[in-house]
């Protein structure tokens, strides 16, 4: 425990030193303020921007989109995973697709989706789901594969029906893998929505960053970047914390 906190402390010092060095380099003019502004300036710019309320609509839009994309990917991916698991032949045929899916740049289809659906919410939702859903499908398949065979026998000794077996034994046994899928879906959904907004979109935080970049408005641009990085870090921290809580009681020492 003492080791943990010591390393955590060193890590904190390292991060603080990096930020401090950047601050110093910006303040002394070593780094041109037209390239990077000082971290303290980013923070104060973000504070002003948030206080003005002018960002509220775009925050709601972008975070709402990320939530929608993630929720759709998790629900549909889970359902698809269960269905594919039940059809071994389909699954064998799909395996090569799954194996290469994240190796090909699926995002390149975003402009194609705009061509079909116009510059609306639809292409962003679709590219987001397309990016995130496969991770959830793969995680569901993985989870169902790893349900120990002995649980099947336990279910029969306890004379459980199919639905009871699925809900009381298979689902909890597969849960760690499903959670991995959820984490990936959140992460991929976030990246896809921001990237889509950044490259081509009528509104949203990603679009705001692109606009601020085009207007040479560095204070606004860095404030927005800082905001998104903070949100992403917070989401990751919450998911990581949940993961740790599950792992602490479940994984330790099991073969």
């Amino acid at each position: 425990m003492a080791i943990m906190t010591r390393i955590g402390l060193i890590r904190l010092v390292v991060i603080a030193a990096l930020i401090g060095a950047l601050e110093l380099a910006c303040r002394t003019g070593l780094i041109d303020h037209r390239i990077i502004i000082a971290p303290s300036e980013m923070a104060s710019a973000l504070w002003t921007l948030l206080a003005s309320g002018s960002l509220d609509a775009d925050i709601a839009r972008t975070l709402g989109l990320i939530g929608l994309v993630t929720a759709l990917s998790i629900v549909l991916g889970f359902a698809a995973g269960i269905a594919i698991h039940a059809l071994p032949r389909l699954r064998e045929a799909l395996d090569p697709f799954f194996a290469t899916y994240y190796a090909v740049p699926v995002f390149i289809f975003y402009p194609v989706l705009i061509a079909i659906f116009g510059l609306s919410l639809m292409p962003i939702v679709l590219i987001g789901v397309a990016t995130a859903i496969v991770a959830m499908i793969i995680a569901t398949l993985n989870g169902l594969d790893r349900v120990p065979r002995v649980l099947d026998k336990v279910a029969r000794v306890h004379r459980l029906g199919r639905i009871a077996t699925a809900l009381q034994l298979q689902l909890p046994a597969a849960a760690p893998y499903l959670f991995t899928g959820i984490k990936l879906a959140v992460s991929y959904g976030f990246i896809a929505v921001i990237a889509a907004e950044f490259i081509l979109s009528p509104a949203g935080l990603g679009r705001d960053i692109a606009d601020a970049y085009a207007d040479f408005n560095n204070r606004r641009m860095y404030a927005l970047i800082l905001f998104l990085l903070i949100v992403a870090t917070l989401i990751n921290a919450v998911l990581h914390g949940l993961d740790m809580r599950f792992a602490a009681r479940r994984s330790g020492g099991r073969a």
Partner: peptide, 29 residues
């Protein structure tokens, strides 16, 4: 060992950030 213990979690959290937000910074540099 110590560098790994300190540095790896930093890399992990950087890995999970949406790097597209940093593209304007890369372009400025």
């Amino acid at each position: 060992r110590l560098s790994g213990a300190v540095g790896e979690p930093i890399l992990v959290s950087l890995y999970s950030l949406p790097k597209i937000t940093l593209y304007p910074v890369v372009l400025l540099i």
